[in-house]
Nucleic acid binder design. Structure first.
Length: 669
DNA sequence: GCGGATCAC
DNA sequence: TATGGTGATCCGC
C-alpha cells in the first residue's frame, strides 16, 4: 500500500547514495497483513546489512540489473511508437475491453478462506506457552511462517532465520511439522465441505468455495455465510481464519487479505462496486503479479493500480504479448478466470536438495543417487512413469541451470533415472553447486501399474489403454540410444498417447491466474480430494540407507565413446558432437583424447581442437557409411557455447553462466 | 522440446 | 555459518 519502496522507485535512485538499502528489493519487505506500525526503514536496512556482499546478494543484484535492462528496452519500444501505432493499438485494446466486459459473470458468489499464520497458529495450539511470544516456523536458513507478534518486528515468511533473529533477538524458532498441519487442514476442510462439497483447495491453509447455492438455498447473504463458516472453523480447530467474498476467485483472494487476521470482507456482485474496488487496488495484490511484474509495470508504464491497466492498455497491447496484455486488461476490469475443470492432473514430479556448495564429484554423485532413489520411490507411490528428465543445478553463485532429456521410453526406476541424470550432470562438470534437483515430466497417461495401491481411489476419467504398460520400465530395455539425447527428440514420437487432459485455459498461467493453478490437489467428482504435501518429514528416512554405494564418477568419465556409435544419423551426429565438446575436456582443462592442455577460456581454440578430433572420427566412419560431413562453424550448439568467431567476450565458460539477451523477455516481436 | 524465469504457498 | 521445496506456466528459441 504505502510501501517503503514505492516512492522514487525504478529510477535507479539513490544507488551508491547515503541509503543504499533502499535499492535492495526483497520479496519479504512488501507490506502485507500484520505489517502495520513496522519500522520499514529499519527492517530494510537490517536486511541489507545482513545480506550485503553475500553470494546470494550478488546474484540478486545481477538479476535486478537484468530486469532494469528489460525495463529500459520496453521503455524504448514505447517511445518508438508512432502516433499511428498508438491509434491502432488504442482500437485493438478498446475492442478487446468491450469483449471482455461482455464476458463478465456476476452470477456466482465465491468465498476465499485463508487461515491466519497457519503453521505458527497450529504450533501455538500444540504448545500454548508460545502464546503471545514472537515465533517463527522454520529454520535459521528459511522461515515458513511467522506469528503476528514476530511480524511486528518485520519478520516474514520467506525470510532467512538468521536475519529474522537480527530483527527480533527473542524470536523463537519452531521446526516445521507437516503432519500436524495436514491434520488441522483436514479439520478445516470438513467445515468447508458443508458450504461447498466441490471446494477448490489452494494449499493446506486456503480454499475457494462457491457459495452461490448455499446462499440461495438458505436465503442468507454471503456475509453471514462467511461469519458462520469462520466460526465453524474456529470451533472445529481452535484456529482463526479470514475470508473474502467476491464474484470471482481472483477478487475473493484479494478480499480475504483485507481484514486479516480473523476478519472478512465482502465485495458485492455489482459491476460498479467491482470497478470502484479495483480502481485503487495496487497491482501487487493480484495473484500472479509478483515482484518482477510489479517492477516492470511500474517502471515501464507507470502502472500502480489496476485501473491504470486500462488507461495504459494501448501500450500494453503494443509492447507485450497478447495473452499478457489481455490478462492485465481483465484485471483492470476486475474479471476473474473461466472455470477450471474439476479434475486436474499432476504434470511433473520432482525433488531437490540444498547443501553446502561443493565441486567434489564423488559427493555430487552421491547426492544424485539419493535424489534418484527418493524420486523413484515417490513416483512408484503414485504409479507415475515419465519420459522427460530434468536436472536442476544451482551454482555456488546462486545461478540456476536446468538440463533436460526426453526419452523414448517411460521411466520410473531409480536406475533409469540415475543413469540419465548422471549423463546430464557429467556434461556440466566441473561445477560447484549448492543444489541439485531432479524432475520427471511427460507422464504416461495412466498409472504405471508396477505396484498399484489398492486403497488409492483411481480417477475414472483416466484413459486406461492397454498400451499403458508397454513403455514402462517393467519391459525390457530397448536399444540404448539415450546418450544422443537431443537427437532422440528429433525422432518422431511413437504414437503419442496423450491421455493427459490437455485443457488450456487462457486465463490460467503466470500472469493469468487467480492463484489456484498451482494447486496440487486432485479434486474428484465426489468431492473427495487428495493433497500432495511437501513431505519434509520423510526425507530423513530416505537419506539413511543411501549413505554408501556411491560409485566414483570419475571412473565413468573417460568415455568419449559417444563417437563410437556407428549408425548415427546426421542430426544425432551433431548432437553427439555437442556432447563431445563438453565431455572432451578432462577437468575442463585437458583433452581426453590427445592430452593437449587448453584452459576453458580458449573457447575458439578448443572448438577448433574438438573439430579436429571430430573430423578424424568421422573420416573413419565415413569410410564405412557413405555420408559426407562438413564441419560447420555456423551451427549453434545447444550447450550454450555460441560460436562467434571473433568475440573473445564469449569467454564465459559454462561455469560462469551464459546470459540470454535482454530483448527477449516480455517483448512482443 | 529446452532453458531461463516468474509466481504461489 | 547461513537465503527452501514443489509444481505450474510462459516466452523465445
Amino acid at each position: 500500500m504505502e510501501g517503503a519502496n514505492s516512492g522514487g522507485d525504478g529510477d535507479g535512485d539513490s544507488d551508491g547514495g547515503d541509503r543504499p538499502w533502499q535499492s535492495y528489493h526483497t520479496v519479504y519487505t512488501t507490506a502485507k497483513a500484520g505489517m502495520e506500525g513496522v519500522d520499514k526503514e529499519k527492517v530494510q536496512r537490517v536486511v541489507y546489512e545482513m545480506s550485503k556482499g553475500s553470494k546470494y546478494f550478488q546474484n540478486e543484484e545481477r538479476k535486478e540489473a537484468f530486469i532494469n535492462q528489460k525495463i529500459q528496452n520496453l521503455r524504448i519500444q514505447c517511445a518508438k511508437l508512432t502516433q499511428a501505432d498508438l491509434v491502432h493499438y488504442r482500437k485493438v485494446a478498446d475492442r478487446r475491453i468491450v469483449e471482455l466486459e461482455a464476458s463478465r459473470d456476476l452470477s456466482r458468489i465465491w468465498l476465499h478462506v485463508d487461515m491466519d499464520a497457519f503453521y505458527a497458529a497450529v504450533e501455538t495450539l500444540s504448545n500454548p506457552t508460545l502464546q503471545g511470544k514472537p515465533m517463527a516456523v522454520g529454520s535459521m536458513s528459511m522461515i515458513s511462517t511467522a506469528n503476528y507478534e514476530a511480524r511486528k518486528f518485520g519478520v516474514r515468511a520467506a525470510m532467512p532465520g538468521f536475519i529474522a533473529r537480527k530483527l527480533c533477538p527473542e524470536l523463537i524458532f519452531v521446526p516445521t511439522d507437516f503432519k500436524k498441519y495436514t491434520y488441522y487442514s483436514d479439520l478445516t476442510r470438513k467445515v468447508f465441505r458443508i458450504y461447498d462439497p466441490n471446494f477448490v483447495a489452494g494449499s493446506l491453509d486456503e480454499a475457494y468455495l462457491d457459495i452461490t447455492e448455499v446462499c440461495k438455498e438458505r436465503n442468507v447473504n454471503s456475509e453471514e455465510i462467511a461469519q458462520e463458516l469462520r466460526a465453524g472453523v474456529y470451533e472445529e480447530t481452535g484456529l482463526t481464519c479470514s475470508a473474502g467474498v467476491a464474484p470471482n476467485r481472483l477478487l475473493a483472494k484479494v478480499c480475504s487479505d483485507i481484514n486479516k487476521p480473523n476478519g472478512q470482507y465482502v465485495l458485492p456482485n455489482d459491476r460498479m462496486a467491482v470497478m470502484t474496488f479495483v480502481s485503487s487496488l495496487p497491482i501487487r495484490k493480484i495473484g500472479g503479479i509478483g515482484k518482477v511484474t510489479e517492477h516492470i509495470l511500474k517502471g515501464v508504464f507507470e502502472i500502480n493500480t489496476c485501473e491504470q491497466m486500462l488507461e495504459k492498455s494501448s501500450y500494453l497491447y503494443a509492447v507485450l504479448s497478447q495473452p499478457t496484455a489481455e490478462f492485465f486488461c481483465s484485471v483492470g476490469l476486475g474479471l476473474g478466470q473461466k472455470d477450471s475443470p474439476q479434475v486436474r492432473f499432476r504434470k511433473s514430479i520432482s525433488n531437490e536438495r540444498t547443501f553446502s556448495a561443493t565441486e567434489d564429484e564423488v559427493l555430487l554423485h552421491k547426492k544424485l543417487v539419493e535424489l534418484a532413489e527418493m524420486l523413484s520411490a515417490d513416483m512408484q507411490k503414485e504409479g507415475l512413469c515419465g519420459r522427460t528428465l530434468t536436472l536442476k543445478l544451482k551454482t555456488a553463485s546462486f545461478e540456476v541451470r536446468t538440463r533436460a532429456v526426453t526419452l523414448q521410453k517411460y521411466i520410473s526406476s531409480s536406475e533409469d533415472i540415475l543413469k540419465h541424470a548422471k549423463k546430464l550432470l557429467k556434461a556440466e562438470l566441473p561445477i560447484s553447486v549448492r543444489l541439485i534437483g531432479l524432475r520427471v515430466s511427460q507422464f504416461n497417461g495412466d498409472k504405471c501399474s508396477a505396484t498399484p495401491d489398492p486403497t488409492q481411489k483411481t480417477i475414472t476419467n483416466f484413459i486406461t489403454s492397454g498400451d499403458v504398460n508397454r513403455n514402462c520400465s517393467s519391459f525390457p530395455d530397448v536399444a540404448d540410444l539415450d546418450f544422443v539425447s537431443d537427437a532422440e527428440t528429433n525422432l518422431s514420437i511413437a504414437n503419442g498417447q496423450t491421455s493427459q487432459l490437455d485443457w488450456r485455459d487462457p486465463f490460467v498461467g503466470n500472469y493469468l491466474s487467480d492463484g489456484d493453478h498451482q494447486s496440487c490437489i486432485v479434486q474428484k467428482n465426489d468431492g473427495v480430494e487428495e493433497v500432495q504435501t511437501p513431505s519434509n518429514d520423510a526425507t530423513s528416512s530416505h537419506y539413511s540407507g543411501f549413505t554408501e554405494g556411491s560409485t566414483s564418477f570419475q571412473g565413468q568419465f573417460e568415455g568419449i565413446n559417444v563417437m563410437n556409435e556407428s549408425k548415427l544419423r546426421e542430426g544425432a551426429r551433431l548432437n553427439s558432437r555437442c556432447q563431445e565438446t563438453t565431455m572432451l575436456w578432462l577437468n575442463d582443462y585437458k583433452c581426453s583424447l590427445c592430452g593437449i592442455e587448453l584452459p576453458p577460456s580458449f573457447v575458439e581454440e578448443r572448438l577448433e581442437h574438438s573439430d579436429f578430433h571430430l573430423a578424424e572420427k568421422l573420416q573413419k566412419e565415413e569410410s564405412r557409411i557413405h555420408q559426407p560431413y562438413v564441419p560447420s562453424r555456423s551451427r549453434n550448439q545447444k550447450d550454450g557455447i555460441t560460436r562467434q568467431s571473433k568475440s573473445k567476450k564469449q569467454k564465459l565458460s559454462k561455469k560462469e553462466g551464459k546470459y540470454t539477451p535482454i530483448d527477449s523477455f516480455f517483448v512482443k516481436k
